[in-house]
Simulated scan of single mutants.
Amino acid sequence: MIEIVRTNDLVLIGFLQSLLENANIPVLVADAHMSALEGMIGAFPRRVLVPEGHMAQARRLIAEAGLESELRHV
């Protein structure tokens, strides 16, 4: 799995997860349960991960959605 986005924005994470899943790209949101440990203060960003074979397509979809600035540099 390759990290393509790291953010504390839960709305953005939900949007990206939906965008990728609708394109049949497997997606994993890592560190989602850290909020229980941190007390919901947003100290630990969540990571959006996709399989390496889907990385180019996922990055293209995110860029086409106008969110290219959110992508992690490879």
Rank of each mutant, 00 (worst) to 15 (best):
residue 29 V to T: 13
residue 41 I to Q: 15
residue 41 I to E: 14
residue 55 M to V: 06
residue 56 A to C: 02
residue 52 E to F: 03
residue 31 D to R: 15
residue 67 L to S: 10
residue 59 R to S: 00
residue 11 V to P: 05
residue 2 I to W: 11
residue 8 N to C: 08
residue 71 L to T: 06
residue 34 M to G: 09
residue 50 V to K: 01
residue 71 L to N: 05
residue 39 G to T: 09
residue 65 A to S: 15
residue 42 G to C: 07
residue 45 P to A: 12
residue 21 E to T: 12
residue 27 V to T: 07
residue 32 A to L: 13
residue 53 G to M: 06
residue 24 N to R: 05
residue 40 M to A: 15
residue 14 G to S: 14
residue 62 I to N: 01
residue 50 V to E: 02
residue 51 P to K: 01
residue 65 A to H: 10
residue 33 H to E: 15
residue 35 S to W: 04
residue 71 L to D: 09
residue 20 L to G: 04
residue 43 A to I: 14
residue 68 E to A: 14
residue 29 V to P: 00
residue 50 V to T: 03
residue 20 L to E: 02
residue 53 G to C: 06
residue 53 G to T: 02
residue 56 A to E: 04
residue 33 H to Y: 15
residue 56 A to V: 06
residue 39 G to E: 13
residue 62 I to G: 03
residue 38 E to R: 14
residue 50 V to W: 02
residue 52 E to K: 07
residue 50 V to G: 04
residue 60 R to H: 13
residue 57 Q to W: 02
residue 30 A to I: 00
residue 5 V to F: 03
residue 51 P to N: 10
residue 74 V to T: 09
residue 47 R to G: 08
residue 25 I to T: 06
residue 32 A to V: 11
residue 14 G to A: 14
residue 65 A to I: 03
residue 51 P to V: 05
residue 74 V to N: 08
residue 23 A to C: 04
residue 51 P to W: 10
residue 55 M to P: 08
residue 47 R to I: 10
residue 57 Q to H: 08
residue 59 R to L: 01
residue 27 V to I: 09
residue 46 R to L: 07
residue 19 L to M: 03
residue 54 H to N: 02
residue 22 N to I: 07
residue 9 D to T: 05
residue 26 P to W: 05
residue 62 I to W: 09
residue 12 L to K: 10
residue 67 L to N: 04
residue 55 M to K: 11
residue 42 G to T: 08
residue 60 R to I: 00
residue 19 L to S: 01
residue 40 M to E: 15
residue 47 R to K: 14
residue 14 G to F: 00
residue 59 R to Y: 01
residue 54 H to K: 03
residue 21 E to M: 12
residue 54 H to Q: 03
residue 55 M to F: 08
residue 55 M to I: 09
residue 22 N to T: 11
residue 58 A to K: 08
residue 59 R to C: 01
residue 25 I to N: 10
residue 30 A to H: 03
residue 27 V to G: 00
residue 69 S to R: 15
residue 55 M to W: 04
residue 40 M to H: 15
residue 50 V to S: 01
residue 26 P to M: 04
residue 53 G to I: 00
residue 12 L to N: 04
residue 68 E to I: 09
residue 62 I to E: 00
residue 46 R to S: 07
residue 67 L to K: 09
residue 51 P to E: 03
residue 54 H to A: 01
residue 49 L to N: 10
